[in-house]
Every structure is written in C-alpha cells, then in structure tokens.
C-alpha cells in the first residue's frame, strides 16, 4: 500500500518535470516582452538593457531554466508578480485556501445531490421521479455555470436578500458559489450513479441477497450501493479536476478571492510568473487527485491490490 503510493509519487516526477519545462517556456514563447510589461512600454533602450541584464533575461535558456527550478524547488520561490511585484508563492498560498474550501464544499453538494437523486431515479426507474430527474440533469448540463451563478445571485441575494452577493467576508458567502459550482457536477453524478445502480441491481448477488430474505432497503443500501458507488467514487474524483476548472469561472462571478480569479486577472494583464506558477499548481493538483482516487478505489473494491 505505502509502496504503491510511493511508486505512484515517483512516477509523477517525470510528468511534473515536463510540465515545468512547458510552464517555463510559456514566458519565453508568448508574445510580449516581460520587461515592457513589468516596467511599462515607455522606458528607454538603455534602461531596458540594464533591466534585462538584471532580471537575468540575457542568460541562455537552460541557465534561466536551472535558476527557475532551483528557486522553485530549493527556495519555494515562484518569482514575483509583474503587476504587483508581490511574491507569487505567498499570494498563491493565501488564495489556495479559498479555492480549496470552495471546491470541497461544491463536491460535497454535488455528491449529496448527485448520489441521492441517482439512487432515487434508479430504484424508481421509469417513474415520474426518474423522468423528472433525467430531464433536470440534461438541462443542468446545458446551463452555463456563470449564468446559473448570476441567476442565483439575482434571486437569492438581490431580490430576496437571503445571502450576500459576492466576496468572501463571511461563511455565508460561500453558499451560493459552492452551489453554483456543484450543480453541474451533481448532474453528471446523477446520471452516472443511476446507470451504475441499475447495472448492479441486475447482478446475481443482488438476487442472492433477496433470496436470503433480506429487506429491500438493506439490499439497496448495502449490497447494491457498496458495489455501485465504486465507479461513482472514481468518477467523482475525476470530476474534482473539472470542478477546479469551473471554479475559475464561478470565482469570477462571485468575486471569490481564490486562484481562479487570480489566474484570469493574470492572463488579462499578462502576468506570466503568476500564470506559470498556477499552471504548475493546477497540474500538480490533478495528479494528486488522480492518485487519491486510485487509492480510495482500493478501499472500496477488495479485488484491487496495490501491486
């Protein structure tokens, strides 16, 4: 088990290495001169050259890459924002918590709603509930997150005044953004849970459980769900990555001070060190999530052994 985790972690290193190269080259291949972005377009040629020398842009690329890696790995230094001159790693750390809490809570909603509606749809197959569930999921999958967020904000924050509109000043602020972010994933989980439960309900061992005289409720909640939820967990784990993608949009809608809005602001102002750091961070996140999914899969399914 521990060996498996270690092996997977070691296996991540080459991928991360490639990603560092990509994110490093990002700055050097994209249009726009970092010096001009940092110090404005009006500086004269002499100053420009001095600054270029000072910031190390005249060194050969491998040297620059080496310095970038040493700074990052040894000192945990991701450079400074062109725009605010602030330390990128500090800013990222500060904002990471916001995005983390937002995605976790969204996932909580998504699983809560997704799994329960999925189970109801599957066990009451072809009933009015099932149909309503299916129609709502395909609709939910067609609604852009940002619009859904705006509508929630309009109705619950502006018109009814139940929730604050935007920002992150109180715990109540997270409610609308997390629901917005969670609902699309919830729809995916509903569909997936439903088909998974339906599939398991046709299995022979479910019939065995019934033949033992087991209550239908126990048959569903114990025999069926333990099996049906294995693929759901995997899928939900993978959806986590997509949740982070969605967070970029939702954070923008609700002015949530997480990494997503940081990324967009940085892209719009070509703040490359920030973009660089965020690409790296997001990639790392996906890799870790995949690892966690694989591990949790083993806990649920005794047939998987880590070798």
């Amino acid at each position: 088990m521990l060996q498996f985790v270690l092996r997977r972690l070691v296996g991540m290193i080459p991928i991360l290495f490639i990603i560092t190269i990509i994110s490093f080259l990002f700055v050097h291949l994209t249009p726009g001169d970092p010096i001009r972005i940092m110090y404005g377009a009006e500086i004269d040629q002499e100053t420009y050259q001095t600054l270029r020398e000072r910031e190390g842009f005249n060194d050969p690329l491998p040297v620059q890459y080496g310095r970038y890696m040493v700074d990052m790995v040894v000192h945990g230094d991701f450079g400074q924002s062109y725009r605010t001159r602030a330390d990128v790693s500090e800013e990222v750390m500060r904002r990471f918590g916001y995005t983390f809490v937002l995605t976790i809570l969204s996932m909580f909603w998504a699983i809560l709603i997704g799994v329960s509606v999925g189970i109801i749809s599957a066990t009451k197959r072809n009933s009015i509930w099932d149909r309503a569930g299916m129609v709502s999921t395909i609709t939910a999958l067609s609604i852009p997150e940002f619009w859904f967020g705006l509508m929630l904000m309009q109705i619950f924050a502006v018109q009814l005044g139940w929730f604050p509109t935007s920002g992150a000043a109180s715990p109540l602020h997270i409610l609308l953004p997390s629901i917005t972010l969670g609902f699309g994933v919830a729809a995916t989980i509903v569909r997936f849970t439903r088909s998974s439960v339906l599939e398991v309900m046709r299995e022979d061992y479910v019939r065995t459980a019934r033949a033992k005289g087991q209550k239908e409720r126990v048959v569903i909640w114990s025999h069926v769900l333990r099996n049906a939820l294995i693929p759901v967990v995997t899928m939900a784990g993978l959806q986590f990555g997509f949740l982070i993608g969605g967070a970029v949009v939702v954070e923008q809608v609700f002015a949530w001070p997480g990494l997503g809005s940081y990324l967009i602001d940085s892209i719009l102002s070509r703040d490359y060190p920030v973009i660089q750091a965020l690409i790296l961070l997001f990639s790392l996140q996906f890799l870790l999530i995949n690892l966690i999914v694989d591990i949790s899969y083993g806990f649920l399914n005794p047939q998987i052994r880590y070798d």
Binding site: F26, L29, T30, P31, G241, F242, I244, G245, G246, V248, V249, L263, I264, I267, L268, I275, I279, F282, S283, F286, N290
Partner: peptide, 17 residues
Amino acid sequence: AFPGILLAIAVIAFLGA
C-alpha cells in the same frame, strides 16, 4: 486529464484574447 476550460484558458493565455 485537464478540464476543458482550463486547457482553453491556457491556450488563450498563450495566444491572447
């Protein structure tokens, strides 16, 4: 492995708006 929107944002970051 990457969510579509992040991939698209990365491409835009590269190519410009």
